[in-house]
Write a protein that binds this DNA or RNA. Sequence first.
DNA 1: TTGTAAGCGTTATCAT
DNA 2: ATGATAACGCTTACAA
Lengths: 342, 342
Amino acid sequence: MMPLTIRELSLLAGVSTATVSLVLSGKAEGRVGPARRKAILELAEKNGYVSNPAAKGLAEGRAYRIALCVEGRLLQQGIIGNFSLYERMGLAAQQIQAAGYAIEIVQADTKRPPEDVCRQVARHPVDGFVFLAWSPVLMEPVLLSLRDKRRPAVAIGSVLKDDGFTWSDVDRYGAFAEATRQLLGEGRRRVALLDTNEGGIYTDLKRKAFADTIAAELGANTSVPAFAPERFSFSGVVALTERALRQVKRPEGILLTDNFYAEPVLYALHAHGLKPGKDCRLIGFGETDLADKCVPRLSHYSLRIADQVSFCMEALFEQIQSPADYAPRHVLFGPEYVARET
Amino acid sequence: MMPLTIRELSLLAGVSTATVSLVLSGKAEGRVGPARRKAILELAEKNGYVSNPAAKGLAEGRAYRIALCVEGRLLQQGIIGNFSLYERMGLAAQQIQAAGYAIEIVQADTKRPPEDVCRQVARHPVDGFVFLAWSPVLMEPVLLSLRDKRRPAVAIGSVLKDDGFTWSDVDRYGAFAEATRQLLGEGRRRVALLDTNEGGIYTDLKRKAFADTIAAELGANTSVPAFAPERFSFSGVVALTERALRQVKRPEGILLTDNFYAEPVLYALHAHGLKPGKDCRLIGFGETDLADKCVPRLSHYSLRIADQVSFCMEALFEQIQSPADYAPRHVLFGPEYVARET
DNA sequence: TTGTAAGCGTTATCAT
DNA sequence: ATGATAACGCTTACAA
């Protein structure tokens, strides 16, 4: 059984292909009689009509494909720990397909010179580009060259200087400042920040927010205990936590740079008889799914990935549909506290 | 700069579109003079010609899309722990795109009745379907209905009864039998199996291989210590390991059903002064990337995902290109030991 | 309100 | 060896 075409549908309905096309693409508004409209829609439904994306695309000058661009190889960078990349991909994929587009995954070799990367990316016959969590420095030349070619593009999970680009990200500085204020506001003075995020390019930013806030609230000469593990692993973070417990006696509050290694922190606290939440408030950052795997579940500031993705995908489709009157935009989502048992 | 078409290329080269098409699609074999051929290729290269997939697909009656079908929502099932799904997806995506196809991710709601799932899956206007790690029971009706419609499909990471389907998987029974023989062959008698794989639908199979092999080598009345954690988490598996250490005094060998929670096992062994490898040989199963994150790196039996994916993708493309003389095939990849420091 | 017909970029079948 | 030309399925002026 070959897939049905509008031609066949039009023969069945006894109308022309144009009429069928208008009805099926929802442009029949006052151009096709309601009885015919209904008959055609029923016929299409009954026979399981599916429009041919190649034909549709060819006629409209579209590829009906969108590129998801990641830095490096998907497996290398993603396989361990980088859940947020997968969540971004999954959500973006959903929204792309809901709009009738297929996906092309571009694994860009960002070690090569920028112009090579531009060429490699731009070669893809797609209607739009989505950059997932790229480093701004590497992405800028690529975005510039795409803009020159009037090719729609958005960046999810990166902060850019140029107002001519479209991007979305979460305000990490704001989140860590607020988290620190929260601890101090509860009267907790012995606080620490533990780095639990392998290859975290934002670690310095988070530390700075922590330090700035302590300085602002308690005075510039207060000590700011921040710890990084020797090795990012379960046992490495257990050791890290124990080191922190040694240095900060009976800490009343701990901030984690990421939810990923929250479990070993909880494990170490437990081993030392410290009840998280009660004795020591623990606040994480990142994926809610990861936080909810902990026992007790981890309170944290959200990465707001769904918001980031929705914002950019909406902008991208707008850009594709009417490039002429599209205005670039960006957003830095504010801190969102997810209260849990710790 | 609008993308170049073969029409424009043909005008530049002073030849017909047919000639350009033949050259660019590599079908010029003795049909176009070598000088012309070279000139056309250079022109295409210089001007960055990219073929329009919609036009190509329309002319060839192809969608140039392939569906990657997963059970349930990608995020729900994949986000925690299910690395192998992502690795399968990533590898499949690479091979699909290398062949010039785009991807459609189908998140099938397998809780609904089979015929609904069939309809939902079959609706997608794609040239082929790849099923990633589906449960055979749920997949069979879908594969049957696709076969009826002569739609190419393959199943990666599932074992099927019907010889008319194409699938690939790894022989888990074989791997655990061999792993057990390996431990016993080294003279290790106090051995145990720890379940470190959340929602492992193959746990029983692995336990059976373990038990069968012990019975075969040491006699049917030997005890077969197998342990499952109360909760799948780092601390849960630490507790699991400690329970095992209590019950099997100074174990000489431990099998893990999965590499995912190997770290807490190593942590617990270390805490009890047991050197993995020396005192107690530890053998995992699954993702090599996960095994290599451990310290010391974990010896294990491989999931052979790359082999599984290559086998099925090759078959799928063969099926798409010449459906008439395609013969269904399957493979169960044998045990592959990855020797590491433990 | 409906139908006709001209594209869209590529492939493939013919003539030449 | 090369060039016209007719598909492929759909959209969209434009004509009726």
